[in-house]
Structures are given as C-alpha cells and as structure tokens.
C-alpha cells in the first residue's frame, strides 16, 4: 500500500472546524440573543446581574467557548474570503499573522473580562 497520510491537509481541517463551530454557534448565538434580549432585557443589564450569571461555571465555560468558537469562525471566514479573492504570497502570510494575533488578543481579553465579571480575580 501507499504511504499513509495521517495528518489532515490544512484546508480540510479548517473547513471541517468551520462547520463544527458553525453548528455550535447556531445554538449558542440563538441562546445568547434570547437570554439577553428577551428573558433579560438588555437595557436592564447591571453588573450584579451579569455576575450572577457568570458565577455559574457552566455558563462561564459556555461563554468562553462561545468566544473561542465565534472568533475562530469569524476570523477564519475573513481569511477565507481574502484567499478566495486571490490573496497570496507574503501578503497572505502577513494577513494570517495579523488575524491570528488579533484573535488571540480578543480571546485573551474576553476571557479576562469574563473572569472579572464572575468576580474570580
């Protein structure tokens, strides 16, 4: 038999991850909108209320995962849109680096904010 390629081709991995995060986001984004606009009115949000939600470990983890999935899905979508338009070479590498840095910064900041909201700092 031919040599086995056990590693995922890069395009395929991100393609699959984009779909998996999509399925997750569909549910959580709908939940997020429903919770903070219908169950709790956005105008009535206070720090106390936010803290009460964030203190729940399950909610905290869901929100952090929501952030990570959303950032990946969105930034990967932007990157793909640019590749589809013919982005290549050095420009492509620079764009990828900038997007990765922005994503990491966003996730770090968001997670930090969430821990502060939960009162764990």
């Amino acid at each position: 038999m031919a040599e086995r390629y056990s590693s995922f081709a890069p395009g395929g991995t991100t393609w699959l991850l984009q779909r998996i995060t999509a399925a997750f986001l569909v549910v959580v984004l709908a939940f997020h909108f429903f919770l903070l606009h219908f169950v709790n009115h956005a105008a009535d949000v206070t720090f106390m209320g936010t803290q009460a939600r964030m203190e729940n470990v399950g909610y905290f983890l869901t929100m952090v995962l929501f952030l990570i999935a959303g950032t990946f899905h969105g930034v990967n979508g932007v990157y793909n849109a640019l590749v589809n338009q013919g982005l290549q070479g050095t420009q492509k590498k620079v764009v990828l680096a900038v997007l990765v840095i922005a994503s990491v910064a966003l996730i770090a900041q968001g997670t930090y904010v969430a821990t502060v909201m939960a009162g764990w700092t």
Binding site: G70, L106, Q109, V113
Partner: peptide
C-alpha cells in the same frame, strides 16, 4: 459574517 465578526470585537 463581516458585520458579526466586527461586532464581536466591539462587543468585547
């Protein structure tokens, strides 16, 4: 999609 990722950054 562009609007949503833009909003996510603003939101945080």
């Amino acid at each position: 999609g562009w609007m949503l990722i833009g909003y996510l950054f603003t939101h945080i």
